[in-house]
Amino acid sequence: MSVVTDPARPAVVEAPGKPPARRRGSFGFNTVSPREKVVRYLLLAFVLLITIGPFLWQLSTSLKGSGEDIYTRIPRLLPSQPTFSHYKEVTDTIPVLDYARNSLVVAVLVVGGNVIGASLAGFAISRLQFRGRRIVLGLFLATLVLPGEVTIISQYVTVREFGLANTLVGVALPGMIGALNVLLMYNAFRALPLEVDQAAIVDGANAWQRFVYVALPSVRGTISVIAIFAFIGAWDDFLWPLIVLTDPNKYTLTVGLQYLSGTFSNNPRLIAAGTMIAFIPIVIVFATLQRFFFKGVEEGAVKG
């Protein structure tokens, strides 16, 4: 490590256990001054209020009793007559749980397709020599400049030709192997040292064995990021299922919610309950997997 120091002002060497003397206004790198800590936590709390506040407000609205005034000028976060009755009413009137199941079916298909399809292709392009490799890679790269919305109409035409219009498979199918995911896997596999492959070849491993036993275990971080993003993307997608699905029984949660908000536009408590039914599962999924997600970020799996 090379640290350029001004001879007139030698670098402060921090003695363990003893807080180093520091000029006012600057902050250290291994320790944080108490004042800076307070400022940082205050700012963190402020941003937390902005990012999480609306969700808490919605949760609170969904739990407020029908007799409670939700329009008061002085907002109350804690419901005075907490009740789950709006959740029951929403699920009784509209098949929200069926919508949730439909969303889950689509999400599982998309996650499975991407994890398998993208790792197979990413491995082949990065670790195996073959004629046409560069062209294949170029094709995957070329599609990145094309926003999905541009081709959404002709994608619908393709899905309709397959006889899959108004089906859940039709919703899941086009997104089952994303070009971006193939490139992410390509990047992850490429980062592995070639010597590992060569050692495996010397030991007599064939391509498939090198893929399963050597390469795959080293890219778990990237695979989990792809899986998390594929799940979130499929669960949250709105435009595509809105175009493909016409039968209300087959709606996914997002399309169903939009339908619900039209039906209950005069009762915000019910809409709030519906949004929470769509929101809470995805938050749980993300909160349990965030460890892998942030690890994947550090490995460089997220580059936009």
Partner: peptide, 27 residues
């Protein structure tokens, strides 16, 4: 071997990305 591994992803790319781009112009 590489083609067997690449073909699913390539098929998806052709059917759901490249062909729709051309078809958008035709449509």
């Amino acid at each position: 071997t590489p083609w067997v591994l690449v073909i699913p992803a390539l098929a998806w790319l052709l059917v759901f990305n490249l062909w729709p781009s051309i078809n958008t112009v035709i449509l």
